[in-house]
Amino acid sequence: MMKKIVLVGMLMGGVVLSGMAQTRGSLGQNDPKAKTVLDNVSKKFQTLKTVVANFVLKVQGGNNSVSDSKKGTVYLKGSKYKVSMEGQEIISDNKTSWTYAKDVNEVTINNVDQSATTITPAKLFTNFYDKDFLYRLEGESTEKGKTLQNIEMTPTDKSKNIFKVVLSVDKKNQNIAKMKVFEKNGNQYTYEITSFTPNTAVTDATFTFDPKKYPGVEVVDLR
């Protein structure tokens, strides 16, 4: 579940930032320099009708105990999304969500709870993140010929398993380039966008699960 939440949050790119770049209010003040970066990315992404992005997820366990790398693709159209990874698909039309596991040929169906505290694309247009994170601009770095603006986010709720998130924004293109998530148990998850295609043709059928395309699939309906 943690991977699902973080993955969706990261790969929505600037849509995430439309919530994070708000004024914090009574909980404290966010870094105005970071707010400027986030606002610029947010404005760009709000003009996009669809997004298709390829990514690499790198997982490192505490004390380097586990190391893994997976490729995937995310499709986004408004509040609808589909995440395809090796052996797994996560689909939502903002009313129903489907999580498919290839190894057991099983799909789990749930209603999308709009009032839940989990991070979903439907909430990324609101100030949801603003209520849960403080952020500041750490500085700039250069990777693969790109200048990255690195923003550190820390949850206001210190009981959360995630204690820090670092967002890296491509300064030139104002796109999310990378996100690194740090857990208290030592696990680290790095999501790197390898390609980003805006306003490509994505049909609504992409955001529903068709069991006919998965012969013999076991359906676990939790609605």
Rank of each mutant, 00 (worst) to 15 (best):
G87H: 04
D31C: 03
D113F: 13
V202M: 09
Y135V: 00
K35R: 15
K3A: 10
N199W: 01
V181Y: 04
V202I: 15
N105P: 13
E138F: 04
N64T: 07
V83S: 12
S65E: 13
F196A: 01
F163M: 03
I176W: 05
L137A: 04
S18H: 01
G186Y: 06
I193P: 12
K172F: 05
M10S: 13
K164E: 00
S26N: 09
A177E: 12
V16L: 09
Q60H: 08
K212D: 11
V6W: 08
V52R: 15
T194C: 02
E89A: 00
G216C: 02
V41D: 10
F133C: 01
F209E: 11
D113T: 07
T147R: 10
G87Q: 08
K82T: 09
V8C: 04
K213A: 03
G19K: 00
K146C: 05
N40H: 10
A53W: 08
D204I: 01
S97M: 15
K44A: 12
F55S: 12
V83Q: 07
F207C: 00
D68A: 14
V37L: 11
L167T: 03
E89L: 00
N185C: 02
K49Q: 15
N127L: 05
V51D: 06
S42K: 05
D170K: 08
K144T: 03
T120C: 06
G78V: 08
N175A: 02
G72Y: 14
K3F: 07
N185M: 05
K178W: 04
K164R: 02
K131T: 12
E218L: 02
N30R: 02
G13H: 04
V41S: 09
T117E: 15
A53S: 15
V83D: 11
L11F: 09
V219G: 00
N64C: 10
S42Y: 08
V181L: 01
D157T: 06
Y135S: 00
K180P: 02
K158C: 02
F182E: 01
Y189F: 06
S67I: 09
K184W: 03
V74P: 05
E143G: 06
T23Y: 11
S115G: 09
D170L: 08
D210R: 07
D204T: 01
S65P: 06
M153T: 01
V59S: 14
L57F: 07
I90C: 12
Q46D: 15
D68N: 14
E183K: 10
T120S: 14
S26C: 01
N187C: 02
M2I: 09
V51C: 06
D210S: 10
T203G: 11
N127D: 14
D113Q: 13
S195R: 08
N110F: 14
K3G: 06
V220R: 00
Q29R: 13
T200K: 03
G186I: 04
V16F: 13
V15M: 07
A53L: 13
I162L: 12
N185W: 05
T99S: 10
T73S: 11
G13V: 05
S159Y: 05
I151V: 14
I109D: 07
S69M: 06
S97R: 15
D103C: 00
E86T: 15
L57Y: 07
T36M: 12
N30P: 00
V165H: 02
Q88V: 13
I162Y: 06
S168W: 11
D204K: 01
L222M: 15
P32K: 02
